[in-house]
Design a protein around this nucleic acid. Sequence first.
DNA 1: TAGATTGTTAATCGATTAACAATC
DNA 2: TAGATTGTTAATCGATTAACAATC
Lengths: 217, 217
Amino acid sequence: MERFSNISMAVVRRLPKYFRYLGDLLSNEIRRVSSQELSKITGFTASQIRQDLNCFGGFGQQGYGYNVEELYNEIGKILGLDRTYKTVIVGAGNVGQAIANYTSFQKSGFKLHGIFDVNPKVIGLSINDVTVMDVDDLEKFIKQNDIEIGIICTPKAHSQKIADLMVDAGIKGMWNFAPVDLKVPDNVIVENVHLSESLFTISYLLKEREETTKKKK
Amino acid sequence: MERFSNISMAVVRRLPKYFRYLGDLLSNEIRRVSSQELSKITGFTASQIRQDLNCFGGFGQQGYGYNVEELYNEIGKILGLDRTYKTVIVGAGNVGQAIANYTSFQKSGFKLHGIFDVNPKVIGLSINDVTVMDVDDLEKFIKQNDIEIGIICTPKAHSQKIADLMVDAGIKGMWNFAPVDLKVPDNVIVENVHLSESLFTISYLLKEREETTKKKK
DNA sequence: TAGATTGTTAATCGATTAACAATC
DNA sequence: TAGATTGTTAATCGATTAACAATC
């Protein structure tokens, strides 16, 4: 995946966290916040917060801080959450179904237009008001409906094939839950959710914790 | 979360990826691999791979490279995958059920001992041979069964409360799917899977891509 | 032995933190 | 105006990459 700007991924990955905490402040009807207060809430340093925000513009005011609502809206726009996205899910197994039923994504603007599977037993079923279709129709569906984001919830062995198909159909981004690193052209975005890698980090850290505790004794 | 060793998290997060690719090589019956070949496969530099592996010991041999099976087993041990872990899921909604049905985690040694929920309608149901219990019994269950890992799949508003309860019951690690940053004591490990943060990264990158494409024209 | 490739140190790069002038 | 807090530059820290001697 090629990058198109000079904003580092480290910064980009903090943006959704700012957005979430600002949303919390907003629902608590807090109007203004300083980088120092945000630092306490988020755990990032005040300096880092000011640096991060300044990548995108001067949203603050000296002596005052940041207007919560304004900053929330601005970061929403930066994240591209001021519009909707057409999505499809491929793979109607456990993960695919869970994502399909996860209403908060729909609320954020990620609209589910189709679910696809190979299994004749699930084709035709309706999940969260979306019918499961045959994966043979995937390419045509993406093209005809201008789908932008493909959510890959297929088994490892089929995932690259599905990704290739989506690329041919002109998909712009993929959210990949399969435990593979997909090969796609530079202009296609892939965001991985590698659950087992996340899980194995826990066992690693548990082990590390145990070893160090032993040593200290 | 306190760290107990001087291995950086950047290194730790690459270990599961090495493990996965070595597993792939192993099932393709490839016996040896050099850091250069691993570099091609993983996308990390050969230098980084050698540095990473050397944090844990000299697994390679000059002039030869690494024995795939040996390295796979060693990294498995480093990740703590040479034993089993007792887990419980809290929250039998979409995500909780998907995780419960995800058999590959069980195969990796993460054994599901219980599922808990507040909803009387789901209490008593059986998911993947595990009965859903009342969350009121969670603390007792964790203590009596020496559960080490708690998987939090509850709504945002209840998650910190559940985490507190687990900490009191002596849980060692948590896999958190709720969109909150849990507050736990230093010796308890928390690994977050913040799905919406991951999703919002896609919309950000799509927008960035679009803007830069426009400019180039 | 000669060639290949590791282990490891040094150099570079990038990200985070500190500091402070600008200014509300 | 005085106090507060940003925006921004400079300093520090840590992670990645390059280089090469060691050695199989």
